[in-house]
């Protein structure tokens, strides 16, 4: 092989293979939010789509009271969404591995403690109940670290603990805050050469 051919082939192979030995990084390519609750509207924004080694991906969940009466929302840990995780199905089993979503709001309270990777998690059992006034919107940021994800695919935002799910009430009855947020996540290539 001629030296120039060899050097060109080496450079190209290095360029194409570089980064393959590193950790997987991800990109949230699509989000969809559905809610079946008439008094409540839920939307999801994606301020940071990429979960790379430099930074986590970020989702902003917004809850809005769409009726004329105030609503009470009861949550555990942080209000109003609670401690969230990702799961491969909207109704995961108890044994399903669920990467925990981190929220800056966890840092503002001692009601929830989540270790890196979600391997250790403690949640205060005392509920937090607050009013959501008519037309009021409340937004919370949640972050997803790439090294917590087991792989690419479709994931759903779920409550980390089923028995600590957020609920709402317009009167005396407490109903589960039911919604479905679907994320399509793809593995991201490091070098775009």
């Amino acid at each position: 092989m001629k030296r120039r051919t060899f050097l060109t082939a080496s450079a190209l192979s290095v360029a194409s293979l570089s980064g393959c030995l590193g950790d997987a990084e991800y990109r949230i390519t699509n989000t969809a939010a559905e809610t079946s609750l008439p008094p409540i509207s839920l939307s999801v924004d994606l301020p940071v789509a990429d979960a790379t080694i430099e930074h986590p991906a970020a989702l902003t969940l917004t809850l809005e009271n769409t009726v004329d009466d105030p609503l009470r929302i009861r949550s555990y840990g942080v209000w109003p969404f609670g401690v969230l995780a990702l799961a491969p199905s909207p109704t995961p089993g108890e044994d399903t591995l669920k990467p925990t979503l981190f929220s800056p709001s966890y840092e503002t309270t001692d009601r929830v403690e989540v270790s890196r990777g979600g391997s250790s998690l403690s949640l205060d059992g005392t509920p937090i109940t607050r009013l959501l006034a008519p037309g009021e919107r409340v937004s919370r940021r949640y972050e997803l670290r790439g090294d917590d994800l087991p792989g690419s695919g479709t994931y759903y935002v779920v409550q980390n603990f089923d028995r600590r799910a957020s609920r709402y009430s317009a009167g005396d009855d407490w109903k589960p805050l039911e919604y479905r947020i679907r994320l399509s996540i793809e593995e991201k290539r490091r070098l775009s050469i």
Binding site: S13, V14, L17, S18, G19, L21, G22, D23, E25, T52, I53, R145, G146, D147, R190
Partner: peptide, 11 residues
């Protein structure tokens, strides 16, 4: 270069 370029979360 090939072995060294290894972006990791830990790194």
């Amino acid at each position: 270069v090939l072995w060294g370029f290894r972006p990791t979360y830990a790194g």
